[in-house]
């Protein structure tokens, strides 16, 4: 979609005390100046510099997505929530998905090649959706946190995140090696 110029913002805005659901009828999601994500809310205004956040990243991946706007004073304001992304036209839904992909920089682990432990560090050699990665994490419970019932999010020494959505999806050998070290 071609960049659209940002129109002057009006004073009106969302009621901060109530949840507002955005629908394809009430808003339009598009790119604006310098490729920034914009949302035009009918009879309200155009919001520029919009970013998206999951309300329930584990339980409802494509639903309940919050669209937030950074006001000029740096404070973030929620424009509204998208109840279901598939309700939106594919182009608009894709823009939101791209915004989510930008905000959530997470490697999804598909295979564990090697896992080792030494002196309080776990070293991993894994296959991810972004390619093969080797990383080190501290052997501490807050560095491998639960993701839903059977998943884990691993946080490496640089605070980068690696997701194993479901431990049961790993091969028995990989799972055994993993739970031998990350047993919690």
């Amino acid at each position: 979609m071609a960049d659209e110029p940002t129109q002057p913002e009006s004073e009106s805005g969302p009621d901060p005390t109530r949840v507002r659901y955005l629908t394809p009828e009430s808003c339009r999601i598009h790119l604006g100046t310098h490729g920034a994500l914009h949302v035009t809310v009918r009879d309200e205004r155009i919001y520029g510099g919009v970013y998206a956040a999951y309300a329930f990243p584990v339980a409802y991946g494509d639903q309940f997505i919050s669209l937030l706007h950074s006001a000029g004073d740096g404070k973030d304001v929620e424009i509204g929530l998208i109840r279901n992304l598939s309700d939106f036209p594919p182009q608009q839904a894709d823009l939101v998905r791209q915004a989510l992909a930008r905000r959530y920089f997470i490697h999804t682990i598909t295979r564990i090649h090697e896992i080792g432990w030494k002196y309080g560090f776990v070293s991993l050699d894994v296959e991810t959706d972004k390619g093969r990665v080797q990383f080190m994490m501290r052997w501490k419970s807050d560095r491998a946190v639960d993701y839903g019932r059977r998943g884990k999010v691993l946080i490496d020494v640089d605070e980068n995140r690696y997701l194993i959505p479901d431990l049961d999806a790993l091969s028995p050998g990989e799972r055994a090696d993993f739970t031998r070290i990350i047993y919690w």
Binding site: T6, E9, G32, T33, H34, G35, A36, H38, G48, G49, S70, G72, R102, F105, D158, E159, N160
Partner: peptide, 12 residues
């Protein structure tokens, strides 16, 4: 122009 534009993204 009153809009926060993402200039660069970076990993942690």
């Amino acid at each position: 122009d009153g809009v926060y534009v993402e200039v660069v993204a970076y990993s942690n």
